[in-house]
């Protein structure tokens, strides 16, 4: 056994080494991407894909022109957005779970998502609906709720404190969102409705053009925290004794999560449970070593949201299901199962 594999996770199921698991997930993601690109209300034959993506389309071939525009302008940005959002949601789930030292912590559960939503709704009602205003407001909302959840959640040991803090914070945020909605005038209400229902349908190239480098850059930065995150699993004192300035680490992680979740919430609204279910599954297979958990969870989250979006698009063609319904429908029962089983992961 080489030195490199020694320091990596030794897998729970020996079939999967971390490297193999990451490669397998990447392969699954590729297959899902092809499926997602070729399926939908407009049927596009798989064999036409290469030409549609890379080749020239004869000007008189109207059918192929429709396929190409659907593929390049509707499905591709949306699929990439699903990959990006799913990866970031799972990543922030992993970060939250290590920070709170609790496998049930999740951005939506601890109020990060509702805080971001509150920020965005506040901006829509008080100011304008420009995304450049929405994103920072959502970031600030997420930041405040995360800090609150962190300090409130520590007052009770175990899951109880965190869940109680999450319930309270979510309740406060939702009631304030309700208040803003009450105060909104007609045009603001319309923006709010669109934003609420936004999901992944807002995926367009200009949005992706700046959201992608932002989220990818911060995600890569998050990957570098694997040592500190592992140490946090041992305990905060242990992390301190291992040389991690615990207060600074905590602060950095909270800001990092809010910087990731805020703009994402501003762009998609709330998409629940990816951040809970995906890290959990990955930990079951690969273990909790963040060196492999972080990249594997990102890929897993990308796969999960891409698949969920695909389901949402094809379930009731030519209409669509809101993506949040699909993820919650699968994630909700899974969460209950985790609570009932209470097995450490």
């Amino acid at each position: 056994m080489s030195g490199a594999t020694l320091t990596l996770a030794s897998p729970g199921l020996s079939l999967f080494t971390p490297l193999r698991a990451v490669l397998a997930l990447a392969l699954v993601l590729l297959v899902l991407l092809l499926l997602s690109l070729s399926h939908g209300a407009v049927g596009i034959p798989l064999q036409a894909m290469p030409q549609l993506l890379f080749g020239d389309i004869p000007a008189d071939h109207l059918e192929m022109q429709l396929w190409q525009s659907v593929l390049l302008e509707v499905r591709l940005p949306r699929a990439l957005f699903a990959i990006l959002a799913g990866g970031v949601l799972a990543l922030t789930g992993v970060l939250a779970q290590a920070l709170f030292r609790n496998p049930l912590a999740e951005p939506a559960l601890v109020g990060m998502v509702s805080g971001g939503a509150l920020g965005a709704v506040g901006v829509i009602v008080l100011g304008g609906g420009s995304f450049l205003l929405l994103a920072p407001a959502a970031f600030i909302g997420s930041l405040i709720t995360t800090v609150c959840a962190y300090h409130l959640g520590r007052r009770y040991p175990g899951v109880a404190g965190l869940l109680l803090a999450g319930v309270a914070i979510n309740a406060i945020c939702f009631s304030l969102i309700g208040l803003f909605t009450y105060l909104a005038d007609d045009t603001q209400l319309r923006t709010l409705t669109f934003w609420n229902m936004g999901s992944l349908a807002g995926a367009r190239w200009p949005l992706l053009a700046w959201l992608t480098p932002w989220l990818l850059g911060l995600s890569l930065l998050a990957l570098r925290y694997w040592r500190g995150l592992n140490a946090l699993l041992l305990g905060e004192r242990e992390a301190l004794h291992l040389g991690f300035p615990i207060k600074a680490l905590r602060r950095q992680l909270i800001v990092l999560m809010a910087l990731l979740v805020g703009p994402l919430v501003a762009a998609t609204g709330g998409i629940g449970f990816i951040g809970l279910v995906v890290p959990h599954l990955v930990r079951m297979v690969l273990g909790a070593d963040h060196r492999s958990l972080l990249p594997a969870a990102m890929l897993g989250g990308a796969c999960a949201l891409l698949a969920a979006d695909w389901l949402a698009r094809i379930a009731v063609m030519p209409a669509e299901l809101p993506i949040g319904i699909v993820t919650s429908l699968i994630g909700g029962p899974f969460f209950l199962y985790l609570l009932l089983k209470g097995r450490p992961v």
């Binding site: 041992l234 930990r283 450490p344 992961v345």
Partner: peptide, 12 residues
Amino acid sequence: AGLAFNLAVREV
């Protein structure tokens, strides 16, 4: 030291 997460002994 309590640890609720699924780490291998070698990783710890």
